[in-house]
Amino acid sequence: MKATFNEKKLGFGFMRLPLLDAKDPKSVDMTMLCDMVDAYLAAGFNYFDTAYMYHGFKSEIFLRKSLVERHPRDTFTVASKLPTMQLKEAEDMPRIFNEQLEKCGVSYFDYYLLHNLNVENCKIASKLDAYQFIQAKKAEGTAKYIGFSYHDQAPLLDEILTSYPFFDFVQLQINYLDWDNESVQSRKCYEVAVKHGVPVVVMEPVKGGILANVPEVVSEHFKTASPDKSIASWAIRYAASPENVKMVLSGMSDLDQLKDNMSFMNDFKPLNKTETALVEQAVSIMNETIAVPCTACQYCVDDCPQQIPIPNYFALYNSRKMGPQEGFSILNLYYANMAKNNGKASDCIACGKCEKSCPQHIEIIKHLKEVAATFE
Rank of each mutant, 00 (worst) to 15 (best):
132 Q>D: 08
246 K>T: 15
373 A>Q: 11
221 H>Q: 11
182 E>A: 07
197 G>P: 07
4 T>V: 08
339 A>L: 04
175 N>R: 05
299 Y>K: 15
27 S>K: 07
92 D>V: 06
39 A>F: 01
5 F>C: 08
158 D>I: 05
336 A>H: 14
258 L>R: 02
87 L>Y: 05
169 F>Q: 14
322 M>K: 12
372 A>F: 04
41 L>V: 14
216 E>L: 14
336 A>E: 13
81 K>G: 00
7 E>C: 03
271 L>M: 13
320 R>F: 15
264 F>P: 02
145 Y>I: 07
95 R>A: 11
123 K>G: 04
267 D>L: 14
39 A>S: 09
247 M>E: 01
177 L>K: 00
324 P>Y: 15
165 P>F: 05
328 F>R: 02
181 N>R: 06
351 C>Q: 01
81 K>F: 00
231 I>V: 15
58 K>I: 04
258 L>V: 07
33 L>R: 03
38 D>R: 04
4 T>I: 09
270 P>D: 12
150 Y>A: 01
172 L>T: 13
12 F>Q: 05
350 A>K: 14
217 V>D: 12
106 V>Y: 01
310 I>H: 12
7 E>Q: 08
87 L>G: 06
175 N>Y: 02
290 I>E: 13
115 H>M: 00
147 G>V: 07
142 T>A: 06
246 K>S: 14
80 S>M: 04
125 A>G: 09
276 T>W: 11
66 S>A: 15
126 S>V: 10
5 F>V: 09
71 H>E: 05
361 H>Y: 01
175 N>P: 06
84 T>N: 00
270 P>V: 15
96 I>M: 00
339 A>Y: 02
29 D>Y: 03
183 S>R: 10
375 F>R: 06
341 N>E: 11
155 P>A: 03
131 Y>E: 07
14 F>T: 01
289 T>S: 15
79 A>W: 00
145 Y>T: 08
30 M>T: 03
316 L>A: 10
330 I>D: 00
45 F>G: 09
300 C>Q: 04
215 P>G: 06
138 K>N: 11
361 H>I: 03
38 D>C: 02
18 P>E: 12
320 R>N: 15
250 S>F: 11
219 S>M: 14
36 M>I: 07
316 L>D: 09
345 A>E: 13
80 S>T: 09
187 R>S: 11
290 I>R: 09
26 K>P: 05
342 N>Q: 01
80 S>A: 10
366 K>G: 02
259 K>S: 08
38 D>L: 04
2 K>D: 03
291 A>G: 08
123 K>V: 07
251 G>F: 13
280 E>D: 15
296 A>I: 07
275 E>T: 14
285 I>D: 11
311 P>I: 12
372 A>L: 06
320 R>P: 13
238 Y>H: 09
205 P>K: 02
68 V>K: 09
332 N>S: 15
35 D>H: 05
163 S>A: 10
218 V>I: 14
301 V>H: 07
324 P>L: 15
